[in-house]
């Protein structure tokens, strides 16, 4: 039996050394694909949301601390940089949520076919963008601007 490389041969024969394992994924040998981008964005938004969780705790603490702390956090979040960060986190959250549901469906064994994976991928990405814009538009319409 011939194998494409030494590592594969070792795996097949059940004699793999820990130092010579095939690395996965070999990004450089794959043609760039939409589903790859979605997967990487899922991880990137997850990291962004970890930072966003810090803000959530800051917000909870500011409510507990009193009106003054709440007002100063609000002042920062209402600045253009604060709004930009909130907008980014809104999109990250909605993307991670939609794509996370896609992951849960895969774990349940459905949607794994190429066509389905591509379609649900487009749907998750489209949803996150549309829902983010719709949410912010609704907020600005309701409150004018938030202060």
């Amino acid at each position: 039996m011939t194998y494409i490389n030494q590592a594969t041969a070792q795996v097949a024969r059940g004699r793999m050394d820990t130092g010579n394992r095939p690395l996965s994924p070999h990004l450089q040998v794959y043609r760039w694909q939409w589903t790859m981008a979605l997967s990487i964005i899922h991880r990137a938004t997850g990291i962004a949301l970890a930072v966003g969780a810090l803000l959530m705790v800051c917000w909870l603490v500011s409510v507990a601390q009193g009106a003054e702390a709440y007002a100063s956090l609000n002042a920062f979040l209402s600045s253009w940089i604060g709004r930009l960060m909130l907008f980014g986190w809104t999109w990250s959250l909605l993307y991670h949520l939609a794509n996370g549901i896609r992951h849960l469906a895969w774990d349940a064994g459905s949607g794994l076919e190429l066509d389905a994976a591509r379609t649900t991928g487009y749907a998750a990405a489209a949803f996150s963008v549309v829902a983010t814009i719709a949410l912010w538009a609704a907020v600005y319409t309701m409150t004018g601007a938030f202060s």
């Binding site: 009106a67 609704a138 907020v139 409150t143 938030f146 202060s147």
Partner: peptide, 17 residues
């Protein structure tokens, strides 16, 4: 998460109290 988004939006601009 959906509940939290709804709650935060409803509290926007409503103040500390």
């Amino acid at each position: 998460t959906l509940w939290f988004i709804y709650s935060i939006v409803s509290l926007l601009g409503a103040g500390h109290a």
